[in-house]
Amino acid sequence: MQNSTTKNRLFTLASILALLLVWKLLAVFWNQELIMPSPEITLAKLWMVINDTNFWPSVGATLGRGLIGFLISCAAGLVLGFCAGFSAPIYWLLQPWVTVIRTTPVMSVVILAIIWFQSDVVPIFVTFLMIFPIIYGNVVAGIKNVDQQLLEMAHMYRVKIRRIIFELYIPSILPYLLAGASNAMGITWKVIIAAEILSQPFFAIGTNLMIAKIDLETAQVFAWTVVTIIISFIFEYLLNTLENKFRTWG
């Protein structure tokens, strides 16, 4: 087990090195910083970006928006998912809404949100519309998959409803919820930055990307992209750890 983990890590490392190598080769091939800045130029730019006074406020603001959007989606997904999981009428009432939300193109939502809201709120709103259906769908699926025999057992032993919800339903849907959440978390950062690029809040990773693009600072675009990837990676890792912890229940 230990051996295969180290082995897997080696493969991952080799893969990252290959990625950097391909990147470097492409940069050499084009030989134009404007189109394809090399890894070392990007790294230098990244260092500059991090040391800029603008960096932490921007990262903080984007993180804040992402987390707010994500948490609101989780809360709404959990509550409405529970209602829909228990009641067929509520499920069918919500179904068209969820479908509309799920299928609306991200950019339509962004454009409308820019018309309707302040620039700071736009990314949160957009994230909510993108993430909520995922969480909601997983919660509903989780409730529908609760073991009927366990439920029957709990009812026959006259366990109180409140305890059936907290001690039977919630643990049963937790794996579904976490799978949905880690899936949603990855999407959150992509959506939030797309929305920020268009809505241009004062402090935002997306705004910085847009400014870099206007200034034709391709290396800076790369540097901010790297920052986003790192953020995404950290959150994915955290949620995966949580998910693995609870998977043993399944």
């Binding site: 025999q149 366990l150 029957e152 057992m153 709990a154 026959m156 032993y157 006259r158 366990v159 109180k160 305890r163 001690e167 039977l168 643990p171 229940w249 399944g250």
Partner: peptide, 25 residues
Amino acid sequence: SYLFQETRLLCWKTVQENIDFVLKD
């Protein structure tokens, strides 16, 4: 009380917690 063909235990609760689940109320 009941004994079923299936054990019908909650897999996120330990042996004693499973018994406690039906006694608690």
